[in-house]
Simulated assay, not measured.
Amino acid sequence: MSDNRLRLAVLIGSIRDGRVGPTVANWFVGEAERRDDILVDLIDLADVPIGSAAPTMAPPPEVLAALRELTPRLDAADAFVVVTPEYNHSYPAGLKNVIDWHNTQFHAKPVAFVSYGGMSAGLRAVEHLRAVFAELHAVTTRDTVSFHNVWETFDGDGRPKEPQRSAAAAKIVLDQVTWWAQALKNARTTSPYQALSTTR
C-alpha cells in the first residue's frame, strides 16, 4: 500500500455513558478503511480526561499528559471527521474543550461531519461546528452523513439497517474530504499556511 495515503483522524465527540458515538464511528471507520488512499486514526475523546478545564487554566498533570499524547495525532492528520451528537442544539462540551485546547493543528485542513441523534440527527451541532472550525482556519465539507433516530438506525451488530444508503452517504463525504485533504496538503507543501489572525 502506498506511503502517500492521506491521514484521516476520526474524532468521537461524545464522552457520555451509554453513548452511541462509538457504534457510529466504528461503522464510518470501516467504510473509510475500504479505500486505499486513507490511513485512519480513530480518536475517542473519552480517552482524553480534559473534563471542563478551560484553555486559559493550567491543566492538572494527567490532563496535560493526555493532551501531549493527542496533539501529535492531530498534527499528523491531513483531514478530520468529527462524529457528534447534538446536546442542547449544539455540540458536546468535551469536544469543544479538545478543539479549544488546539489551534494550528487544524489550520488549512478539511473537516467533515458524521452526526446523529433524534429527529434533528445532530445537524444543529454541525452548523455550530462549521463556525468554530472556520475560526481555526479549517475548511468544512458541504455534505455530511447524518442519522435520524439513531437508536432505530443500527442493528444489534452495529451495522446500519439501510447499508447501501449509509455507504453512499459515507462515500460522498469521504470523496469530498480526501479531495480537500490532497489539495490543501499540496498547497501547504508549496506555500506554508500563515494565519493572519492572532486569536488564540
Rank of each mutant, 00 (worst) to 15 (best):
M1E: 12
S2F: 01
D3W: 13
D3I: 07
N4W: 03
R5N: 01
R5Q: 06
R7F: 10
L8E: 07
L8G: 02
A9P: 03
A9M: 07
L11C: 12
G13S: 10
S14Y: 07
R16M: 12
D17A: 08
D17W: 01
G18R: 05
G18I: 11
V24Y: 00
A25V: 09
N26K: 11
G30S: 09
R35E: 13
R35S: 08
R35Y: 11
D37Q: 03
I38N: 03
V40C: 06
V40A: 02
D41N: 07
I43N: 03
D44H: 00
L45H: 09
L45M: 07
A46W: 07
A46Y: 10
V48Y: 08
V48E: 02
P49G: 01
P49Q: 06
I50P: 06
G51Y: 13
G51P: 11
G51L: 13
S52D: 07
T56V: 13
M57W: 12
M57T: 12
M57G: 00
A58E: 09
P59E: 11
P60K: 15
P61T: 08
E62D: 15
L67M: 14
L70C: 10
P72G: 08
L74F: 06
A76F: 12
A77T: 03
A79Q: 02
F80Y: 12
V81F: 06
V82R: 11
P85Q: 09
P85A: 14
Y87I: 15
N88D: 14
H89D: 14
P92H: 13
A93Y: 10
G94L: 08
L95A: 03
N97R: 15
V98G: 04
W101E: 04
W101P: 00
H102C: 11
N103K: 14
N103H: 15
T104E: 13
Q105A: 14
H107L: 04
A108V: 00
P110R: 01
V111F: 01
V111Y: 08
V111D: 02
A112E: 04
S115Y: 06
G117P: 07
G118Y: 11
M119S: 13
A121N: 01
L123W: 03
R124P: 01
R124E: 03
R124Y: 08
H128Y: 00
L129I: 00
R130W: 04
A131R: 10
V132S: 01
V132N: 07
F133L: 04
A134L: 11
E135V: 00
E135G: 00
A138D: 03
T140I: 05
V145M: 05
F147Y: 12
N149L: 15
W151S: 09
W151R: 11
T153G: 02
F154V: 02
D155G: 09
D155R: 01
G156K: 15
D157T: 11
D157L: 07
R159P: 01
K161P: 02
K161Q: 02
E162P: 05
P163Q: 10
Q164T: 10
Q164R: 12
R165Q: 15
A167C: 14
A167E: 14
A168V: 06
A168L: 14
A169R: 13
A170Q: 05
I172Q: 15
I172S: 07
D175R: 13
W179A: 08
W179R: 13
W180F: 13
Q182S: 09
Q182Y: 06
A183E: 13
A183W: 02
K185F: 03
A187M: 06
T189R: 07
T189A: 09
T189C: 04
P192R: 11
L196M: 10
T199E: 12
R200S: 04
